[in-house]
Amino acid sequence: MAGRSAPRVRRVRVASELRRLREHAGMTATEAARVLGTSQGQLSNVETARFGVSAARIRAMARSYDCSDQDFIDALVAMAEDRTRGWWEEYREILPVGLLDLAEVEHHATLLRTAVTVHIPGLFQTTDYAREIFRQSVPELSPPDIEHRISYRIKRQAVLFRESPTPHQAIIHEAALRMQFGGPTVTRTQLKHLIDMSEREHVTIHVIPFAAGTFPGSGQSIYYAAGPVPQLDTVNLDQSHGPVFLDAEAQLDKYRVLLDRMEATALPPTKSREFIHHIVQDL
């Protein structure tokens, strides 16, 4: 068995996918351990991410569970073998673990999709805008904690500026554009930055105006990170107590449909950019 050096969230995801493969094959842990020539305890340690797992063992488990999806198996192997310690590790003793997991998922995503109704997506936020949001945290954050969270948020934005930037598709409700976090000056600067980001080739922004009325998924923020294969996609729901990650097949299907329907409700990119321009002029 491999050691514990694999990044936390990816090791957990590999473990959960291996457990799902076993369950889909209709095998109990006892039966699987016997077929694999290991103990039930060792198998449990792998499936609960207490231990890492080698590429050879993953392939052996996939064969035993009659999984023939080679792209999926290769993706699991790549996740298990990745021992990279990302920049987020410097925040390990400073920020909640869920935030570090979010940065890791984001870093490895092949596509990011987000839908928000009351604030600008984190990867597009300016420093002053983010500071105003963090000042409203409950319980109240100390000034040093606020600055740590701001620096963390800005570093997350590197995925949009690296040599091969991650494509980002954002759906933003008009309410989020008109919420004046920090007052007109901060909001104006934030919206101008959003317009600049919308002009980048890998960024697509859709606006849902008030005039669109009701729409699927209203009232919640959705953050969808595509993996190397669809089975390894991840949905993040931003809750007051921290990020919540979903990756069950039915959940992924649901949020894909929700995002597609929200995008169909929204204005196309060019008209969305013009819409944001008009709001800036009103400030």
Rank of each mutant, 00 (worst) to 15 (best):
T117P: 01
Q125H: 08
L111H: 06
R92H: 09
V118N: 14
L112Y: 07
A109S: 11
L112K: 09
L99A: 02
V105L: 15
L112D: 09
L102K: 00
E104L: 06
A109V: 06
E106C: 04
E81H: 10
T127K: 15
T117K: 01
T84A: 10
V116D: 10
E89S: 12
T127E: 15
P96T: 09
E90C: 02
F124E: 07
D101R: 03
L102A: 00
A78C: 04
R85F: 02
V116Y: 03
E90N: 05
E89I: 12
G98L: 10
L99F: 14
P96E: 00
E81I: 15
E106L: 08
T114C: 08
L123Q: 07
D101T: 00
E89T: 15
L76C: 10
L100S: 05
T117W: 06
V77Q: 03
Y91E: 07
A78Q: 11
I94V: 15
T110F: 06
T84E: 11
Y91K: 01
Y91W: 12
G86D: 15
P96N: 02
W88V: 07
R113P: 00
A115M: 08
I94L: 15
D101S: 02
G98W: 02
H108D: 13
T117D: 10
V77T: 09
P121I: 02
R83I: 15
A78W: 02
D128F: 07
V116W: 00
Q125T: 09
T84G: 11
V105P: 04
T110V: 08
E90Q: 08
T126P: 11
V105C: 10
V77Y: 05
T127A: 15
L76F: 10
A80M: 07
W88S: 05
L112Q: 10
Q125A: 09
Q125N: 04
E89K: 10
E90W: 03
E93W: 03
M79V: 11
V105T: 12
A80G: 12
L100N: 08
I120M: 13
H107E: 14
T126V: 02
L112W: 05
V118S: 11
W88C: 01
E89V: 13
E93F: 08
G98P: 06
T114P: 11
W88Q: 07
E106W: 03
M79T: 06
G86Y: 12
A103M: 03
G122Y: 01
V118Y: 09
